[in-house]
């Protein structure tokens, strides 16, 4: 018993180490939120690029090829490697680690988000677009008023899922020596020669963070769905 409290004391209390976890959590959240926003912006743009249909008898547009290549490359390579490439090659001269990491994760996430959004738009019944067009509304008007609001409902659960994956994926920023929650925990464990408390502690913090996020998403989804059935 005494042993456990000593370990707890060493892992969290001494030298105000708990503050390091909080700082680490701050870095994790900062990167995840920034990357999430970048991912959604890229995802929307890329999804629209991939959805642009070629006129009959024509080939796909240049945009379509660019978007397809982007998604293929990002999905076809490990995200750790993408992070290392961004850090040591593309932005080798930058010293804003958080920003470079956010950009790297954002570009990575954008590929997955674009596929989610594309699928969400395609899942809206074709008849909705036809009905809008038959009334004289333009394609853009029908998209904005009818298709996208319905697609939004479709994509919310998988986007939430993607964001949760993203939060945990940021744990690899230790590779480029950023002090996120995971790296803080592992550094403390190597200082105290005791792995259990810091690692389980960090795991609990991730778990609580994601549980809160999940509950928020579920509440939001319930509210959206209410408008369907009245």
């Amino acid at each position: 018993m005494n042993d456990i409290s000593t370990k707890f004391y060493n892992a969290f209390i001494v030298k105000d180490r708990w503050q390091l976890y909080i700082q680490g959590l701050g870095v994790t959240i900062e990167i995840a939120v920034l990357a999430g926003l970048i991912g959604i912006v890229i995802g929307c743009i890329v999804a629209l690029m991939k959805l642009s249909e070629p006129k009959k008898g024509h080939r796909h547009s240049l945009w379509w090829y660019i978007a397809t290549a982007y998604v293929d490359i990002i999905r076809g390579t490990p995200s750790v490697l993408q992070l290392l490439i961004m850090w040591f090659i593309v932005f080798a001269s930058s010293n804003n680690g958080v920003l470079v990491a956010s950009l790297s994760f954002g570009i990575n996430s954008g590929a997955y988000v674009s596929e989610i959004i594309r699928a969400g738009i395609l899942a809206v019944d074709k008849g909705q677009m036809e009905a809008g067009r038959s009334l004289g509304l333009s394609k853009a008007q029908t998209m904005k008023e009818i298709v996208l609001p319905q697609a939004f409902k479709n994509v919310l659960p998988p986007i939430g899922n993607e964001f949760i994956t993203l939060i945990k994926e940021t744990a690899i920023v230790g590779y480029v020596s950023l002090s996120d929650l995971t790296r803080v925990a592992s550094q403390i464990s190597s200082r105290t020669y005791e792995a259990f408390m810091p690692l389980i502690g960090a795991a609990v913090i991730y778990f609580v963070l994601i549980k809160i996020l999940t509950l928020l998403l579920e509440a939001f989804e319930r509210r959206l769905r209410k408008s369907d059935l009245r």
């Binding site: 019944d125 008849g127 909705q128 036809e130 009905a131 809008g132 067009r133 038959s134 009334l135 004289g136 509304l137 333009s138 008023e145 009818i146 609001p149 319905q150 409902k153 408008s227 369907d228």
Partner: peptide
């Protein structure tokens, strides 16, 4: 064609009411 369609109403087999409205 959008202008022309304003004058041509269309009713579909599967109704196609806007589900979000």
């Amino acid at each position: 064609i959008n202008k022309v369609r304003e004058h041509m109403g269309m009713v579909f087999q599967s109704f196609n009411l806007f589900a979000n409205k």
